[in-house]
Nucleic acid binder design. Structure first.
Lengths: 341, 341
DNA sequence: ATGAAAGCGCTAACAC
DNA sequence: GTGTTAGCGCTTTCAT
């Protein structure tokens, strides 16, 4: 079943069929109708590969993320897809699994599939990889990494501002012994930036940062749990702990619960990202919000403007906000960490 | 940059280049090496659309899910992709948003993209839609819905067994007033099957099911929360509640916490799916486990065996298991639902 | 083992 | 407004 059969059925040329499908040139009312009917009658679906080959553009946007299993990403993917569909584009998504080698594979796939643009929403990035895209004049937008150029844009998330607000919230509550649980994945720029910001803000507030940075083995709830377990072993544990992301913070919550201690009475906990489930934790998690929908929109627009409107690459900024829920309170008065019952 | 340039650089024909890329026919050691070098030197990436058009097969598997934002799916997607990649196939995923109309769009996309097979892992399905695929001889595997035929397989998840185990666990604990919170999305067969099974098992255990089935407006944590709020208004609320899935159960947990009541002391709660986060709830959620990885494997194999090995469609079964954690216990002794503090 | 050439299904010039 | 036709980049007979 191809366009020729439709053409025959409608008694027109293949070009005309193509015209009505793509509305790429005026076709008379009558012919259009005949073609439409033929398409329906024959149950014709145009072959997108042939279209891509014929026209030179795939109408596909590539989206590279770290791991669809990390709750931060599904919402991002969904928003990005929605916007893309509204603009008549499709999207294919690829996972790097936080792995630079797999990033190369992802980019290869994007090139082979002839995507029109690609959004790299991960931070495990070799700059050289973006070059592969640039050389082929494929517009790119990246997160916190990557340079701005003719066809490449960069989105800067205000990680630092988020950390600042979190630490200051804690300081305002009276905390002075504050820890930060990061992940071993420190080649991730987003993680690195959060850690650095934490150190910086602590310093600025004149707070000691001795042993206040703990690295988990994996960026996950498990990681948060085991890191918090470590903290619990200390002679004089912190009174507040910030997690590098919500999933980590959720693991921390579990470690504390398991030790028979309470949040926020015994520990104040803050997460980062504001994933949907965080509001449903017990207690609801105070966290730094990154607006995923806005991020997705921003990424798409960055791409669309250079791809369709011939714009040039530029820098975009995304804000963060502290969402105060119930996992933070004034610090415990003494260090008698007595498990409940 | 196309295969012809590579051919020229390696001083061979395009056919030979194609042969070394695809290992589709023997090529001498020497020539192979020359071609390899040329490919690397020119940084050549084959155009997958041209490949698809030329060969007639896309090496793409389609995967249709309801909503990537529902934590049940990301793990499924990831597993499915991993297996597919191991078999040299790619996958494109499409979301229906629990909507039959969008399902049609998804299937259209799959056909236009000339996928080799499609896994329909949602249950909001018009049988007629699967026919579109069948007519085109595209192998299909579906979940609990769909018929088995030459090229179409069906996976039956033992929802009922899961509900049985859940109810019996509760009955064993001494509960008699048990409710089930379902969702308004009752056109979903998976939801329907869980509700039906619940009613059935309750009856068989001689338990009253008066007002024990509550329908939420949305299949989400919000839905679970508002449904549980309703239950909390009753003069004599149930002592145990089963959620149609974990996300719903998590919402229920929050409603109870917010009312100043406790799980499992005041209410026993059971979820369904066993999403990763459930083990990190406070308290950790007792739930019915569906093995996502096995499900993904099963779906892929069902497809692969008919697509590559000329097998015929058949029925597969996936078990469920009750994971007892800390959200279930013996029922409260009296109905004095007194908020803590 | 290798090359020549005919498609694959569509789009886009270019004619009329 | 519509038709003709030459590609798009690859695969795949069919020769050799």
């Amino acid at each position: 079943m191809d366009i020729r059969q439709v053409a025959k059925q409608a008694r027109v040329s293949t070009a005309t069929v193509s015209r009505v499908i793509n509305a790429s040139a005026p076709v008379s009312e009558k012919t259009t109708e005949r073609v439409r009917r033929a398409i329906i009658k024959l149950d014709f679906y145009p072959n997108s590969h042939a279209r891509t080959l014929g026209s030179g553009k795939s109408r596909i946007y590539g989206l590279i993320i770290s791991d669809i299993t990390n709750p931060f990403f599904p919402e991002l993917v969904k928003s990005f897809e929605n916007i893309a569909v509204q603009h008549g584009q499709e999207v294919i998504v690829a996972n790097t699994d936080y792995n630079v080698d797999r990033m190369e594979l992802c980019i290869r796939r994007m090139i082979e599939r002839k995507v029109d643009c690609v959004a790299i929403m991960t931070t495990e990035m070799e700059p050289s990889l973006a070059d592969m895209l640039n050389q082929r004049r494929i517009p790119v937008v990246s997160l916190d990494t990557g340079t701005v150029g003719k066809t490449s844009s960069n989105i800067e998330v205000d990680y630092k501002g988020g950390i600042e607000k979190a630490v200051e919230h804690l300081v305002g509550l009276g905390h002075t012994r504050i820890s930060f649980i990061s992940s071993y994945l420190n080649n991730l720029k987003s993680t690195q930036m959060r850690s650095d910001a934490f150190l910086d803000v602590m310093r600025r507030n004149g707070l000691s940062i001795a042993s206040s940075l703990v690295h988990t083995e994996r960026e996950s709830a498990e990681g948060g749990r085991s890191a918090m377990d470590q903290l619990l072993q200390m002679k004089s544990p912190p009174t507040a702990v910030i997690g590098v992301n919500d999933v980590t913070a959720i693991g921390m919550l579990e470690a504390i619960r398991h030790a028979g201690l309470r949040v926020p009475e015994d520990f104040s906990i803050i997460g980062y990202d504001d994933i949907a489930i965080s509001a449903f934790m017990n207690p609801p998690l105070t966290t730094v919000h990154i607006h995923r929908e806005e991020l997705a929109k921003c990424a798409f627009n960055a791409l669309y403007s250079v791809s369709q409107c011939g714009g040039s690459g530029r820098t975009y900024k995304i804000d963060t906000a502290l969402i105060v829920r119930e996992s933070t309170a004034a610090p415990r008065q003494n260090d008698e960490l007595t498990p409940r019952q």
